[in-house]
Design a protein around this nucleic acid. Structure first.
Lengths: 180, 180
DNA sequence: ATCCCCATGTAAATTGTTACATGATTCG
DNA sequence: CGAATCATGTAACAATTTACATGGGGAT
């Protein structure tokens, strides 16, 4: 069972939760996520689903009953197994280490700025982080409708967003100390 | 000033903090990060620094005084400006939304698993998340030597890792409730 | 009618990964 | 003297982004 990529895992998971569904519905779901890590562009999703189909992980059923041509996707048994395998990789150190945060990344280079710019950075980053946190909360609410697991999964994003706000507040406070 | 990519920003920042330094030193710095988001492979860094050089953001000084041929990189004034511009993008919503976490991503699809598998997922994920948290703490200690800003930046990663552990502990507890 | 959403795709360009290739130095 | 580390690169491949191209349905 050739290992699948992150995006492939996500797409399998979305297809399973919506099946039978169109590629377009998968894209919308991706775009609804507060994280912009994947664009959910047509150029990524259609070729990707084509690969999954060729590999026998999803099956498509063409339908044009209402004039609109569609391809309705479903996971095959093999696809379900691949999805489960991918989820259960979670114990591997590489998976736990696969994190990123563009805001935090920038903070590592703060000494390239003047004290004034630094303050501007932290203030605007804090604002953006708070707005993002609000988005994760909103997203959690929408996910809660899909059951307990959806809510719990979204909670992880809320906690992370919350932690980032707290961190930036402390950064701001320590800049104040510096000035004093 | 054409906007630069995330990895380009990071590389500019690292070069600035170590300059004059080799591409190899930049790679090591990237690889020392607890996050595996970028591999810091030769295949990414050498071409990237080539592009930055061509764009006039970094300058290279060839040196082979001790027999080992090296190219010592320095930021140009233009490179410093680009770095500052990149850092100060932090207020934009897209930057704050540019986050990812492979562990959390998988949790969204937990209902594809049986109750038993779910428990296995959370237990192994928690273990991996704790190990990762320990790595961030260790990393923070090493960064602290480079001054207050380095320590504060690393703290963001620690908080995020901490929040993830907390979240998984709650997930585990809610699975227990479910079983009972 | 016109605009927005549904729906499917392709093409070019960029970016990054793995693997390969080479060679000098340093440490045990 | 052999292994690890320093050091620089390239080649083939994979994956994704942006932009383009097309068309039907439903609402105002």
């Amino acid at each position: 069972m050739a290992t699948i990529t992150e995006l492939e895992g996500v797409v399998l998971g979305i297809v399973r939760s919506l099946q039978p569904c169109t590629a377009y519905a998968v894209r919308r779901q991706l775009q609804a996520s507060p994280s912009s890590h994947w664009s959910g562009s047509a150029g990524s999703i259609y070729p990707l689903l084509g690969r999954l189909e060729e590999a026998g992980l999803v099956e498509a059923l063409s339908d044009a009953s209402d004039g609109r041509r569609r391809r309705l996707m479903t996971l095959t048994r093999k696809g379900t197994a691949a999805l489960r395998g991918w989820i259960l990789e979670a114990g591997q150190p590489e998976v736990a280490a696969n994190v990123s945060d563009a805001l935090r990344t920038r903070a590592f280079f703060l000494d390239a700025l003047t004290a004034e710019e630094r303050r501007r950075f932290v203030e605007s980053a804090l604002e953006a982080a708070e707005a993002f946190h609000a988005m994760t909360v909103e997203y959690g609410r929408s996910r809660a409708e899909d059951g307990a697991i959806g809510r719990l999964a979204a909670l992880g994003g809320e906690y992370a967003a919350e932690a980032r706000v707290r961190w930036l507040q402390e950064l701001l406070a320590s800049l104040d100390d510096e000035d004093a």
